[in-house]
Write a protein that binds this DNA or RNA. Sequence first.
DNA 1: CGGGAAAAGCTTTTT
DNA 2: GCTTTTCCCG
Length: 711
Amino acid sequence: MILNSLNPAQQEAVKAPLGHQLILAGAGSGKTRVLTHRVVWLVEQEKISPFNILAVTFTNKAAHEMRTRIESMLKVPARTLWIGTFHGLSHRILRAHWQQAGLPQSFQILDSDDQFRMIRRVINALKVDDDKFPPKEAQWFINAQKEDCRDPGQVEPRDYTDQTFIKIYQAYQDACQRAGVVDFADLLFKTYKLLQTNAELRTLYQTRFRSILVDEFQDTNAMQYNWLKLLAGEKNAVMIVGDDDQSIYGWRGARIENLHKFSIDFSGAKVIRLEQNYRSTGTILKAANALIEQNEGRMGKELWTDDAAGERLTVYAAFNEADEAFFIVNRIRDLLLNQHNLREMAILYRSNAQSRVLEEALMQFGIPYRVYGGLRYFDRAEIKDALAYLRILANRYDDPAFERVINTPARGIGDRTLSAIREQAKATDATLWQALEALINQKYFSPRTESALNAFIALINSMAAKSETLALNKQVELMLNASGLMDHYRKEKGEKGLTRLENLEELINAAHQFTQEGIQDEMPPLAAFLAYAALESGDDQADTYEDCVQLMTMHSSKGLEFPVVFIAGCEEELFPHYMSMSDPHKLEEERRLCYVGMTRAMRKLFMTYAENRRMHGRESYHRASRFLHEIPAALIEEIRFRTKVSRPDTNRTGYQPQAMGRFRIGQEVNHRIFGDGTVLDCEGDGDDMKVTVRFAKVGTKVLVVSYLTTK
DNA sequence: CGGGAAAAGCTTTTT
DNA sequence: GCTTTTCCCG
C-alpha cells in the first residue's frame, strides 16, 4: 500500500491504532482519501476482514463513491464490506430480521410525501381541526420525536397542543403498523429498538463490526448518534470524520454537539486535524478563515495551502437582481474567452427561487446551464402512481398506495365512496383494503359503485396473479398497461403528457437495469426494486459530461468543487436569511453555509449582491450581507459601476452599464401597449439603441427605445 | 371528473 | 408577485 501520496496528518489518520478516532477534516483536505485509505489499511495491515468493517455515509452518492474507490484499491474482494447510508443499512437489518422487528415480510418504505398524506388522513380520521393542527406541523413533530428516540408514550406533553400532536403521532404509528409501512425515521428507530431489546441480535452485530467508520459526522442527529453507540458497544473501534464548520443541517435535526459528545462518550478518542487544503488559492482560504472565525465555540481549525495567493475575490454591488444576473453572465462570457469550460463554473445561491432570474439571463445569452435539485425522477407524480400500483401488488394493505391508486386513472370511485371506506377502516381498526371488502360484503354500496369497486379489486388481483411469474421489467410493463395508467397519460394533451409517458416507459428500463445489476440478497425482486426507488431515488442524476454552467443552492454544493464560483444574493435578509437572523445559533449556521459556499471555489470567487430585489412580490432594499464585511477588505476587489465611472471601451466584452444613455439595466420602464417592465439589457446607443425588457404581463421583448418611457 | 377560479404558501434537503 | 394547491361547479 502506497502512503507517501498522503501528507503527515493524513498518514497519521490512516495509520492510527485500532481505537476511537475523531478526524476533523477541513474543506478540501482530502477526507475521502483518508477514509478509503483507512479501510484499505485496516484490511491489509491490521488484517481485519472486510466482513468486519462497517462504513456509514449520509448519501448514496457518497456510499457508492467510497465503495468504488475502496474496491479499486483492495486486492481482495470487498463484497462483504458493509458500506451504506444510515437508512440503507438499517433497512438491510430490518429486512433480515423482519419477524423480530414485528414487521410483515413485505413491509414498504414511505417517503416524506407518502408520510404527509398518511398523516393528513389520520388527522381527518381523528376529527381533529386541521387548521389548528396542520399536517405539516404534525409531520414535523412526529419526525422530531423519532429523531430523539421517543415513542408516542414517551413524549412529555408541555401543553394541550402537544397532547393532540401525541394523539396524532400514536394514531399514525398504529396506521403504519396495520398497513405494514415504515417511514424514513422508522427505519433507524426500529433498528435501534430491535438491537436494544434483542440481546442476541445486538451481540451478533456488535461482534461482526469490529471497525466502524462514519463520514460527515457533523450531520448526524440524536438518533443516529444513539444508533452508532449501540452498534459500537464496548469493544469496537469507531473512526468518525467531520467538520464542525461545515454543519449546515441543524434545521433538520443534525446535532453539531455530537462531535463534542464523541470525545466524551467514546473514551480515549484521539483528535486528528486535517488542515492542509488542496483545493483553493491562499486568498480564498484567508477570506473563508476570516469569516468562520466570527463563530463561537468552534473546535478550532485553520485551513492553509502551499498554493499561490491567487486573485482577490470580486464583490459586485448590483442595482437589482437582473443587473446581478447580467454581471454574472458577462463574467462567464469573459471567462469562456479565457479558456474556461462552462462546467468549471458554478453559480451558488441561498434559495431556489433565485435561480429563475439567473436562468433567464443565461438563456438570453444562449449559455447552457444545469439547475441541480429539481424534482427527482422517482418523485414525479406519474412515477409515484406507478410505484403505488406495484406496492399494492406486493401488499394489499399498503394504505398510502391504496389511496393513490383507487381512483387513478378515474374509474368512477368518488370522494363519497372513499370516505365511507376510510370511516369503516377507522371504525374496525382495519386497512383500507380490508374495509373495502367488508363494505362490499355488507352490500353497502349502490350497484353502480359496487361494480366499479369489484372491477378495481379484480384488476389488482388479476395483475398480481398474471405478473407472479414474470420478470420484473415485464411486471412493470404489464402493470402500466393493465392499470390504464399509460392510456390515462396518453390522453393528457401537450408536452406534459408526452414527458410523463416517456417517464413511465423509462420505468420499464429502470426495472430492467435493476434486475441486470441486481445483487439484492434474499429479497424478492419487486420488493427490492420498491425499496431501491424509495431509498436511492437517483442522486446519480448528474451528467457531468455535459458542458454547462452549474446552478445550485449552497446546501447542495457541499462536497463539490469548481474552478470558478459565483455566490449570488449576498444581502442581509436573503443571506443571512431573515428567518435565521434573530437566533444566534441559526445565524452561525448561515455563516457556516457561507463558508461552505466560499470553500467550493478553487481559483476564483465572485460574490454579488443586489441593493434592490423583488422578494415575495415586493421591491425591497437591502444592505450588503454582513458576511461580506467579515472578509478583510484587502482580499476584496469591489466593483460598483454607478459610482466609479469607467471609460467607455468598445473592445470590452464585459459589463458596461455607463454607455446606456437614458436606460440602464434594472430600470423600470413603461410601454404604451405592453405595460410596465424592467430593462434586462441594452445594445447600441442614441435613438437606435435596442433594449431588452421583461414586461410583467407579456414576457421578454427586444424594443427600440423610442417606444419606451422611463418610470 | 375535469377545468377554472380562489386561496394559500413562500429557506435550506436526504433518506 | 408568482406558483402550487385546493375548492367548487358545470
